[in-house]
Amino acid sequence: MLKFLNKVGEYAKETVQSAQYIGQGLSVTFDHMRRRPITVQYPYEKLIPSERFRGRIHFEFDKCISCEVCVRVCPINLPVVDWEFNKEIKKKQLKHYSIDFGVCIFCANCVEYCPTNCLSVTEEYELSTFDRHELNFDSVAMGRLPYKVTEDPMVTPLREFAYLPKGEISSHAVPHTTPRAGQHPQEIAAASAASED
């Protein structure tokens, strides 16, 4: 009999405990309701891409020496380098350069290995088209610079969480020009330069 009562008591205790847990969960969900939405209302608001963002690749035609390193380091040999050997100046002359961004995985290996820095990553990520072949960018298309989010009057730029001022958790609450938490790389460099002097 005592054993049975013990069992009933334990069962009741467990029930109360689970009810408590559900109550705790409810309070968490309820607390979320008073928090500001973290959503970014694209296209009226856009996130400022971070410093190391790897977007669409920019190409400078005149710097390219047609060495094809970008093709060799590309996981899928994507860049198309069309060149011709110019016998007069004994150099390869670039005729066309193109990358199909419908296939590119944006690993930026080509940028990493380019000996003349003619390739660079931009912060452009809006690459939607009606036809996938439109994503096959030639050197002219790749030479264009994207709009900066911060300079577009139609768009409210928002910063990512890591770029917010100290103690701030919502990018809606502060303008994007306020300094972020911690020191900028330039400040660190300046400080170390000053201490070395």
Binding site: H32, M33, P37, T39
Partner: peptide
Amino acid sequence: KISAAAQQRI
């Protein structure tokens, strides 16, 4: 609306 609020959406 409430689902959105509970998930910090709009």
